[in-house]
Design a protein around this nucleic acid. Structure first.
Length: 429
RNA sequence: GGUGGGGUUCCCGAGUGGUCAAAGGGAACAGACUGUAAAUCUGUCGGCGACGCCUUCGGAGGUUCAAAUCCUCCCCCCACCA
């Protein structure tokens, strides 16, 4: 099967510059294609997952992906789709971020033996000579055209305006493509739909300077069915870095996706076969959650490894109750299907000594202390509204004492609302 | 450089001397209903061992019994003109 068909079938494609020609290209040769990643943060979040998966699919089908880290363009900042200017990052920060991105991408893509490449455009952008660049590359760009482009438009109409620095971003990205085309025979650039203008600019530049054809594919901007950007939660973005978003939280994000998103997300964010994914259409009620468990398990396994995914799954089982996932649902998934005692190792916990507990602590204090509530006031409210539980028994009064009597084994399980759990574990002092 | 308009609690946005911890909306959090879903309804939404006290309205001073609101200086943003 042609990669193009696979990508299309799984929902990765929004627009492409060519159709049949691209398909022929994939059939004919090992295609090198790239996607750029902005080093604006020290971790990727799940908003980038579509791009990462696109590269992974390319590789799985015998082509060569390039992950281009924007160490150079990151110094400029892409204005596309932005209503305000990006923060200007320091060189040091960007270098750190580049290193972090490399680590995360390696989980999805095999970079050994040129099976895939990881490049940094700082390598060729930073040393550019301004005058030479203007004369060689700049002359191929028409300002008239650029200001009419969608990516600039928002900013040109906005109060804040568009700085000259950012205005140059497109030219630099076009130059990246030219550079990769020349040095790596990279004929394809992919990216989010907001990158269309930048990608086309690169193709045109290659055409003008090399008289050769390059191609572009964009993926749709994935939003949840409720219209939100992927990965937006109360706590901020959902990161791929386990330090920022624990595997358990990551798993929870996916279990909690909207019903309507299940099938689409399985196609985009897992490698499970499409015919199995289509079957999930029939899932109803509680079975729906089985499907979501598989989605969560598979995505977590991709980012954090199977071990962590199993831990997250078992934790969920322990706090939300076991559910046996029948073989008939997404049979290719390696999610544990046997009845398993929920050993939850990844629910957040706080250690306390027997001394701390001896006299007992008022419930609101404990909920504040463990971070289940952001302030004492929030903890009071939580309890007053009946949302606080100790060992799954509703806390009746704000000053109800929690003490060693509440220990179950060596633990006390705190819960806020339905989904937030926290454990107090006895410290072996 | 000139002129005018602005900076309010997580975000948007009212408020032009006391009744202001500050309308309204969004987000968020809880409760009911459920399937760890969506929708809906209800409540909460600066801090504090809390019918009271403390800290907030760009920053620093000042006027006043009383300031988000008035005055002075400063910082930042925007628009138009140059």
């Amino acid at each position: 099967m042609n990669v193009l068909d696979i990508l299309e079938e799984r929902g990765f494609i929004d627009a492409k510059t060519h159709d049949q020609e691209l398909r022929d290209l994939f059939d004919r040769e090992r295609v090198t294609g790239y996607i750029g990643f902005d080093p604006t943060a020290s971790s990727l979040h799940i908003g980038s997952l579509v791009q990462i998966m696109t590269l992974a699919h390319m590789q799985r089908n015998g082509h060569q992906p390039i992950a281009l880290v924007g160490g150079g363009t990151g110094l400029v900042g892409d204005p596309s789709g932005r209503t305000e200017m990006r923060k200007v990052l320091t060189l040091d920060t960007i270098a750190e971020n580049v290193a972090a991105l490399k680590k995360q991408l390696s989980k999805f893509i095999d970079f050994t033996d040129d099976r895939a490449l990881m490049l940094n455009n700082a390598d060729w952008l930073v040393g550019l000579n301004y005058i030479h660049f203007l004369r060689d590359v700049g002359r191929h760009f028409s300002v008239n055209r650029m200001i009419k482009m969608e990516s600039c438009k928002v900013r040109l109409d906005s109060e804040e305006g568009l700085s000259f620095l950012e205005f140059n971003y497109m030219i630099l990205q076009a130059y990246d493509f030219l550079e990769l085309f020349s040095s790596r025979n990279c004929k394809l650039q992919m990216g989010g739909s907001d990158q269309w203008g930048n990608i086309v600019a690169g193709i045109e530049l290659i055409h003008r300077m090399k008289r050769e054809q390059a191609y572009g594919i964009t993926s749709p901007l994935i939003t949840t069915s409720s219209g939100e950007k992927m990965g937006k939660t109360a706590g901020g973005a959902v990161w791929l870095d386990p330090e920022r978003t624990s595997p358990y939280e990551y798993y929870q994000y996916w279990v909690n996706v909207d019903d309507r998103d299940l099938q689409r997300f399985l196609a985009l964010y897992t490698f499970l076969p499409m015919q199995e994914i289509r079957e999930t259409e029939k899932l109803k009620d509680a079975d729906m959650n089985m499907g979501k468990s598989v989605l969560a398990f598979e995505t977590t396994a991709l980012v954090h490894g199977r071990e962590e995914a199993i831990k997250a799954y078992r934790s969920a089982v322990s706090v939300f109750g076991a559910r046996n996932i029948p073989k008939s649902i997404l049979p290719s998934s390696t999610i544990p299907r046997e009845e398993a005692g929920g050993e939850d190792q990844s629910v957040p916990c706080t250690a306390m000594s027997r001394n701390d507990l001896a006299g007992g602590l008022p419930a609101f204090k404990i909920f504040h202390l463990t971070g289940m509530a952001n302030s004492g006031g929030a903890a009071r409210r939580l309890i007053e509204q009946g949302g606080a539980y100790v060992n799954n028994i509703r806390v009746a009064a704000i000053d109800q004492l929690v003490s060693e009597k509440d220990l179950v084994g060596d633990e006390i399980l705190l819960r806020s609302g339905k989904k937030k759990f926290h454990k107090i574990v006895l410290e072996s002092a």
